[in-house]
Design a protein around this nucleic acid. Structure first.
Lengths: 343, 343
DNA sequence: AGAAGTCATGCAAACGTTTGCACTACCGTC
DNA sequence: GACGGTAGTGCAAACGTTTGCATGACTTCT
């Protein structure tokens, strides 16, 4: 039932395999009558083309590879989710791989995907340099688009969100409320993308940057990291009046630590997260957070990739990289976890 | 660089393609010396076998399809995550599809996967009947294992978690604390799997089952659904002393509603969730919840599938279905959202 | 009526791999 | 020195598609 071949259809229809192939592709050279007949048979047989065979003839696999650092955080879940549904709608299937923030694994994934003859690749990661992207671009014939933060400037085709913009929004909000001392919890990364803009924003407002208020260790374990780092901050005595957690999930842990210490959010300490995960609105207090346009990011990446694939399909000659870089901007969602500082 | 063929290697090595193929498979008929030489060349060329071609010869694609209802809830995220990493370790790649709880889409996914010649399929979903699993089993030659709740008894190869057991654990816990009236929020499903065991558990303890305390509408939107349903309960006046939310995310919304109504958890109302998402431990109060062994579920499913694939590989003759059904049991994680009822 | 054109279809090669079979050398044996 | 064995390798077919080219049957024009 499942898994019949073009040959079988041909036999039943009393025509040759080529005719079936063309009929199914609605090639104009085949008579309407034959097309109808063949389509009917194909349906009855639950015919699905063998994509491996098709791939071999250079017609593409309708397979897209998506590489993400990990898929348990809300951020990447949303991306995977959106990319999958967009791709499905366009008739592509999604194959995914994770890098665990590891450059080698990223490269291996790339090789694996290429061996599987994917039609295109979306490489997501805050840290585009994880893989030596420049090299990759030159080596790979498969269309690829990068998806990440706006930090890099390596000139690849990519869609990125400007974290720095979100962070300056958040600092401005805090400053307007009257805050003067700021903490930072999160982002223990080989190449941090949120800490530098944080420092820069502070500097722009002529604000003091207190090294002691920056906590990065162990924050790759989100809730736990946030909890532990906030406890550490608490133990050291001097406290900032506002703390920026680089992910909402870190903020959750941090708020727990504050609660246990008998401190109130936002009265004693204001907290801001990043991501706007779906739980944030329902936290107590509801979390003020930076909201990157994930859906749009995913859509753009998919569109760019598909366009690239189909363009490549037509003019196989020159594969020029019109290295387009789409930058998207996050918004600030103000809720109850921020207020004017005490006193 | 990437994407060289066996032919090219053969040319460089001065041997035939078949020799290269065998050398790369470490076939004993090829001299050790030749193997070394060919492997060296293959490495230099970054050779990756074209899996489409290999698939065509019946050697399998090393591709596994995973079908889930959706991938934004914590439960399925964890499953996808674990399945992916297990599979990666075993040299397989993962292709995923979502059904959106829709039987047709499930079937289409199945067809698509088969057309892509996946080596095996994991079909996850609380509701195994979404797809007429019995029919599927007979039709499909591709190894498949189901992953879901223990509700069904259609006799497929599957790994399931016994939700009912978790629910009886939870009811017992509540009863031991002294609760007498129980609410239920969640699960607007074509075939509910948690409500019946809930009712059954109540009956077993000779407890009254109050229809007014069961709220299911709109709970497919987790936080929001929980929030709205709890508000509804609150508005109706009479309140249970304990409420079971079928997902932790629903519990989060419910707790928010209670908070806004000025009610305290657990003093005024005890709340229990289901899933043990990573945020639960850090909620205020930390959430008591039923914890299904997701990691183990995923591992078992992968193991069963791979075993099935490789067994099928050896004895191609009989493909007998030793329809094994593995049942796993959830635990109850007791935290701060449950306590003795007031008065 | 024959040439030229159109339309529908078939043939066969190609894509990259695996594998049964055949072949060559070389070895040791009697 | 002919025979069988074995180790190493090549040939060619097969997997299911797609597609350029060839073919054959009509139609239409002159």
């Amino acid at each position: 039932m499942f898994m019949s071949t073009i040959e079988e259809i041909a036999k039943i229809a009393g025509v040759s395999a080529s005719t079936v192939s063309r009929a199914l592709a609605r090639n104009k050279k085949i008579s309407e009558h034959t097309i109808q007949r063949i389509e009917k048979i194909a349906n009855e047989l639950h015919y699905t083309p063998n994509l491996s065979a098709r791939a071999l003839t250079g017609k593409g696999t309708k397979l897209i590879g998506l590489i993400v650092p990990e898929i348990t955080s809300n951020h990447y879940v949303q991306i995977v989710n959106r990319v999958e549904s967009e791709l499905y709608a366009k008739g592509y299937a999604l194959i995914i791989g994770t890098t665990d923030f590891n450059a080698d694994k990223g490269l291996r994934n790339l090789e694996v995907f290429i061996g599987r003859a994917v039609d295109g690749i979306i490489f997501a990661g805050d840290n585009l340099d994880e893989v030596n992207a420049a090299a990759v671009r030159d080596i790979i014939k498969t269309p690829i688009v990068f998806l990440g933060s706006a930090g890099d400037n390596t000139g690849h085709e990519c869609v990125a969100v400007d974290d720095a913009h979100g962070i300056s929004l958040l600092i401005r909000h805090l400053i307007e409320l009257g805050h003067k001392s700021f903490g930072f919890i999160g982002e223990k990364l080989s190449k941090p993308v949120r800490l530098p803009p944080f420092q820069k924003a502070l500097a722009e407002w002529g604000l003091e940057y207190n090294e002691n208020f920056i906590k990065t260790d162990g924050t790759e374990r989100f809730e736990e990291g946030g909890y532990l780092r906030m406890k550490e901050l608490l133990a050291e005595g001097e406290m900032p009046t506002a703390v920026f957690a680089t992910y909402d999930n870190i903020a959750i842990g941090a708020m727990k630590a504050l609660h246990e210490a008998g401190l109130k959010v936002p009265e004693d300490v204001s907290i801001i997260g990043f991501d706007n995960i779906k739980e944030s609105e329902y936290l107590i207090p509801a979390l003020t957070t930076v909201f990157p346009p994930i859906t749009e990011m995913a859509d753009r990446a998919v569109d760019m990739l598909i366009e690239k694939i189909e363009k490549k399909d037509t003019d196989k000659t020159a594969r020029k990289y019109t290295a387009a870089k789409t930058i998207l901007y996050p918004e600030l969602v103000i809720r109850q976890s921020t207020s004017v500082p005490r006193q």
